[in-house]
Nucleic acid binder design. Structure first.
Lengths: 222, 222
DNA sequence: TCTGTAGCCTGACAAGCGTCAGCCTGTCGA
DNA sequence: TCGACAGGCTGACGCTTGTCAGGCTACAGA
């Protein structure tokens, strides 16, 4: 080998092997205590050959996050809300969570656990994406709850909701035996209740909200 | 020195030095990539002397979690609810979060990040405590929302609420500039809204709920 | 059969790890 | 003045880590 591996298909196959094995191990033992030798043993790739396919250990983590966290094949929550205007927040959330928790549990876990091991540049990129998502979601919440521009609650609630979308994967060991669908419906209705309450308080303090809460169910605030 | 250090006060002082330095480093760089040499450098304790005060690196982590996670000086959420019967959930939560986020941010972060590095026995103890708390909180929720024994929602909601109590410390980098008090009030009112909605749905499906939601009326915090 | 070469692997490197034996220093009662 | 002894420190151990130079194998084309 003079200049790396030439067959691009082979490179792809080997990289997938390496990343798949590494993902499991990173989630099992953490990034720092997973060794290159571990990854080689599980993936079947030779220890020296590994460096023909990835630059180094950090490169594996970066590739994983690019595939799982910065994925382009699935919409973010605000994108999904954009695409389905008028639909109740709760229903959109159910679909969003089903998709997220169904196909990307590991990506969520990795993104929360691997942060300290990211290179600064990659961490900045992650934070930027998170901030953008938060901002976009806050716009929706502000409209849904009918609160004024200067009210800081939508931003906080956005942050909280995005955090709650990690609930399933992060705490599933405590939900042993629970129906996954009941789980995500519970989260969705909880979020809807939060937004409704925000709308109700804005309406009570202000004027009757223009948009109001769109979610189904009685507003219990009495 | 024949048999360890004899002055118990000195032992305590040194252990605190070691643990304080280690806590910062574990949160900064993760457990596995923090070295004994790092801990010594930051704490000022000599590398050999360190082993006069703690058994090894894992022992440091265990001591930290005992101090921060299995703390006995602060009540758990269900304990606080037991101690203040009749008070609105929302108010109890505000006080609980103020105490938790004020004095134990690092404990929360550590407990979420250090899990993969715990010895099995310690991990089992953590999980047991978590399960007990979840069960106890579910009892309260069931009563507050007036839902029947066989409804699985209180358990899921308990799990979700305990997860949400980690929101402040886990996502504070996204809440830069926000008033910490507004933050925890927002979480508290969100949780109250969730429980109210659970009560409303139980009441709608069943009979008028006996307990109902006890949260204070419209009192917009802002 | 020979040869060039793409891809695989052996074996080793320096660096860094957790750990500790054994020596050194300072203090204090006799 | 002396020695006993608590506590600090030097220096090194055996091991594991990420990384890679360079030799090896298998096979296509002549």
């Amino acid at each position: 080998m003079v200049e790396g591996i030439q067959n691009p298909d082979l490179v792809q196959i080997r990289r997938d092997q390496i990343c798949d094995a590494a993902l499991d191990l990173f989630l099992e033992k953490g990034f720092a205590s997973t060794t290159i030798r571990d990854i080689c043993a599980r993936s079947g790739v030779n220890q020296a050959s590994l460096y023909d396919y990835v630059a180094n250990k950090h490169d594996i983590l970066r590739r994983l996050l690019n595939k799982l966290w910065f994925r382009t094949d699935a919409p973010t929550l605000p994108e999904m809300l954009d695409a389905r205007p008028g639909e109740p927040l709760e229903q959109v959330l159910v679909d969003y969570l089903r998709q997220l928790w169904g196909t990307n549990r590991q990506g969520i876990l990795l993104s929360y656990r691997a942060v300290p091991h990211l290179r600064d540049e990659d961490r900045r990129a992650m934070h930027a994406r998170e901030k953008r998502m938060l901002r976009e979601l806050a716009v929706h919440l502000r409209r849904l709850a009918g609160v004024p521009e200067d009210d800081p609650h939508p931003e906080i609630l956005s942050n909280l909701i995005i955090f709650m979308t990690a609930f399933g994967p992060m705490r599933d060991w405590l939900n042993k035996g629970a129906d996954p669908d009941v789980l995500l419906r519970t989260v969705a209705f909880s979020v809807a209740a939060m937004v409704e309450r925000l709308a109700a308080e804005a309406g009570a303090a202000d004027a009757p909200a223009a948009a109001g809460a769109r979610s189904a169910g009685a507003a219990p605030q009495g």
